[in-house]
Design a protein around this nucleic acid. Structure first.
Lengths: 386, 386
DNA sequence: CATTAGCAGTCCTGACCTTTGAGTGCTAAT
DNA sequence: ATTAGCACTCAAAGGTCAGGACTGCTAATG
């Protein structure tokens, strides 16, 4: 029925084509794959198309979209009145919202969700984008933290949103080498190298005096005994035992243990990298300073972002969280795209992009996906020959 | 005359006392030291007092200050009309501005300058502030970059403004130790330790294969020959010469040379640490999003901040730059307080605070000064026994 | 009977006006 | 020299109003 309708009127311009819209009345069915109707759970074709068009248009313009404008701009082949009726239904069913009685419609969380899950067409990453990501990740070389740092920077630049990343967990990695560098009698610099690169570097103030020679011996001793072990297998007891042979300051042993094992809680702020907050200023939805504030505070605090990425660790592909799905009132006008990356074939970290709900989901998914692919390559293997 | 005036009227409250203002009609003269009139270049006593009060009040409230309000709140002992006349003079002479005909007065750059140079009373740092700075600087231990990073963080938290710092220059420091850590055949991790701590740590991708044993020998060779040298004395030629004995990949030699010598240009972004941009949101002067934008872009770019700090390297005490003095149209509504810190008794880095011109100059100077004192202590000496 | 033209109704937006009040500069009196 | 008094200015806040972009409803229609 509706399909016939849209074909009957000879389109003055290719329907949707001019504006690059992702879906049209007939195309939707085709895109749905084997069972066309699978795409339309709860919604008939025309509703689906209208929903897609509304979401697409709203993402593009940021203005509530009205029926007249829609029929005209997208050559829908039906009258505004019909579109209005459909929109009213879609609102009833919760896919659209109306800011006020005499305004157009705006997608609801559910509307965005439906769009993301079933309607939008995948986007690609341009060659320039690839290049920037590749070189930037490349520059991070084998420093695990720095990779996350670079990832968040380049992603925020490319997306013009806030981007964030966590450095890889260490527990899937294996011990290669620890270098204890004597700084002075009361401080030691520690560099931990795993099978994928430099995993940690930090300076400890010790409460006992340290002798340089003894430090070297202890260091050799550690390396002799621990090389090849998975970090998560190295217990505090084992370290203590090794330290008994060639004594190390207890602070140092504790620190090492912390590096190898604890990992999770204490290091939130050290492991999360975020950037691009200034991009929020360009988003019309954040012209309200209080909303802006709320988001910036969230960033500052880091906790929420960290948890978002942690959650995504257990997923496989990209994960989109829309508005209230984020479970945080302050973020109810935002969406987040996250995706885990692997170290030695195991999810070990994640990157994400945070922006207004009105974001280019497909594009961001493509970018985030490509970024994780590069990180996967960076971290994929054993770089040591052993 | 004017002094008698102010004494004739029995003050209902201690003049200026209640609001903690920094100066009153008689006090100004006293504070000026030996030659009282030295403080009043171009301005008589009463004008000076009024200027001081206007600046103080404006900094406190952010509202243009009018004559009536001033006489009343500060018990000046003269009538609003008199104050008005004086204000008109002060405006004439360029110390005050008037946003519009029917508004009160606002300090001009020149007004702030006069206030900062001659009128304001020094502020102190509270015990809490001391403690926070001390512990935070302490946590940085002997990592030079991390000290700058911590400094900018804690300063931005304490001041609620943007704070920034540059990591110390290396050229005054002397070589203690380089650790070359073999990561894989094509990457090496480099840790440079100087007489004050860990000065650099970075990973290089080499274009030639690296043999671990040879790397160790080369490393020992470097250390044997270079220990004790000032970094600025280590030339590219010398490195090449050493590398001839025990060959190192040319990339690595270049990197080392860069670490020791080049320092200045290439590393801007690596050496500047800034934080606290979100604090701008609370400043009423940045409610205009475009101004906010301009400042954030500046931050992003880093160049300007870096240059500000570089300039301050040649000064001794705290340096205050007000509005147009900053020489940057985008910053014409901001002021900056900077101060250098020393490494081994030589200016080697600097910290700064950036905020609206309407800032608590005395307080910020106190905080910045204390911060540099702590950094000086951290970096003051030779921590090695040699 | 799904669709649609027509229409009344809603309500945001922006332009324009008025009022209010804080603050000024001038002047004449002290 | 100082100040009380006064007319004047101008930003900010509030109120009114027309315009316009929508809507939902209804009756007509192929």
């Amino acid at each position: 029925m509706s399909t016939r309708e849209s074909q009957r009127v000879p389109p003055k311009r290719r329907p949707f084509g001019d504006v690059g819209v992702v879906v049209d009345f007939s195309a939707v069915a085709a895109d749905a794959g084997g069972t066309p109707d699978a795409a339309f759970i709860g919604l008939d074709r025309r509703k689906t198309s209208i929903l897609a068009t509304v979401v697409y248009e709203y993402i593009a313009t940021g203005e509530p979209v009205g029926s007249a404008m829609l029929t005209q701009k997208y050559n829908l082949g039906v009258s505004p009145a019909t579109v209005r009726a459909e929109m009213a239904d879609l609102e009833e069913e919760g896919y659209l919202d109306q800011p006020h009685t005499s305004a157009g419609r705006v997608p609801s969380d559910l509307g965005y969700r439906y769009y993301v899950d079933r309607l939008m067409l995948p986007e690609t990453v341009t060659q320039e984008e690839r290049d920037r990501i590749k070189t930037e990740v490349g520059r991070a070389s084998r420093q695990l933290d720095s990779a996350a740092d670079h990832a968040s920077h380049v992603l925020s630049n490319l997306t013009k949103h806030i981007a964030f990343a966590i450095a890889p967990r260490l527990d899937g990695q294996s011990y290669r080498h620890v270098q204890l560098i004597w700084i002075d009698v009361r401080s030691v610099h520690v560099v931990l190298v795993t099978n994928v690169g430099v995993a940690a570097q930090t300076t400890v103030e010790t409460s006992e005096d340290v002798d340089p020679d003894r430090l070297t011996r202890a260091c050799n001793n550690l390396n002799r005994h621990l090389v090849g072990h998975r970090l998560s297998d190295i217990t505090f007891e084992k370290l203590n035992q090794l330290s008994a042979e060639t004594p190390l300051p207890s602070d140092l042993v504790r620190l090492l243990a912390g590096l190898f094992i604890e990992q999770s809680e204490a290091h939130v702020e050290r492991r999360l990298f975020a950037g691009g907050a200034h991009n929020l200023l360009d988003q019309q939805e954040f012209r309200d300073l209080r909303k802006l504030r709320a988001i910036l505070d969230l960033l500052e605090e880091q906790r929420s972002l960290y948890e978002l990425l942690q959650e995504s660790l257990s997923t496989k592909g990209p994960k989109v969280s829309i508005g209230h799905e984020l479970g945080n009132a302050d973020m109810s006008e935002c969406s987040v795209v996250t995706m885990p990356y692997k170290v030695a074939n195991r999810n070990a970290g994640a990157v994400g992009v945070l922006g207004p709900r009105r974001m280019q989901y497909a594009k961001l998914i493509a970018l985030v996906t490509y970024m994780t692919e590069r990180l996967n390559v960076l971290f994929q293997g054993e770089f040591f020959e052993s």
